[in-house]
Amino acid sequence: MAEKRNIFLVGPMGAGKSTIGRQLAQQLNLKFFDSDKEIERSTGVDIGWVFDLEGENSFRNREERIINELTKKRGIILATGGGSVKMRETQNLLTARGVVVYLTITIEKQLARTKYNKHRPLLQQLKVPTRDFLEELARDRDHLYKKIADITISTDKQNTKIITNRIINILTSS
């Protein structure tokens, strides 16, 4: 890429934001950040603990502050938390400071990818994620992802290398 611009990955849990983000960063020689990991780094505890202790609203405010700081950087790839788009200011930061890539995933694939993951705060209360729960999250957030996305790509049927190359091809042809 001739110019170094920020690329922000949004989408539901299990869509592959962190995995694809790391590959994009490596291929484009950019620095990779994960907003959840940055929250953990700044607090010294995992995001589930922060989420439980502070509640969702306080967690989202903390997430917004972290995303504000990260999006001020130049030439980064940022994987955001699935619920980060719930905050209007976060939406504004992402759309104003980089290219937003919405990674989509079917509920079936999301169920398979998140089945045993205990790291995600919204899933910690469930023994296993349910279709109803994930469908409710999708109804709540899908329109927000679409609203801010510059690029939308499905992560269901292709491996991360192919998806990463598709994103790079779209970015370099625009």
Rank of each mutant, 00 (worst) to 15 (best):
E63Y: 09
G55D: 12
F133M: 13
D36I: 06
Q23D: 14
W49M: 12
R60D: 03
E64G: 05
N117P: 01
E56G: 03
A96C: 09
T95V: 15
K86Y: 04
K115A: 13
H119E: 14
G16Q: 00
T80K: 04
Q110E: 12
I39V: 15
N6D: 03
S58L: 12
L111E: 04
V50Y: 05
S18R: 09
I20V: 15
M13V: 02
R131G: 04
Q26N: 13
D46M: 07
Q23S: 13
K31D: 08
Y102V: 08
D132F: 09
R74E: 15
K109D: 10
G98P: 08
Q27E: 15
E38H: 09
G81I: 03
F32C: 11
F32V: 07
K109F: 08
I7V: 15
F59E: 03
F32M: 11
T114C: 14
V99H: 08
N6W: 00
K86P: 00
S35M: 08
G75A: 04
G16S: 05
V45Q: 14
T114N: 11
F32K: 05
N57G: 09
V101C: 06
F59H: 05
T104G: 09
E54R: 12
K73V: 01
N61K: 15
I77Q: 01
S84F: 02
I67E: 02
E69Q: 14
L126H: 14
F8H: 01
F33S: 00
L9F: 03
N6R: 01
Q125D: 13
L123Q: 02
A96Y: 09
L103V: 10
G11F: 01
G75C: 06
L94Q: 06
T90K: 01
R5Y: 07
F33L: 10
F8T: 02
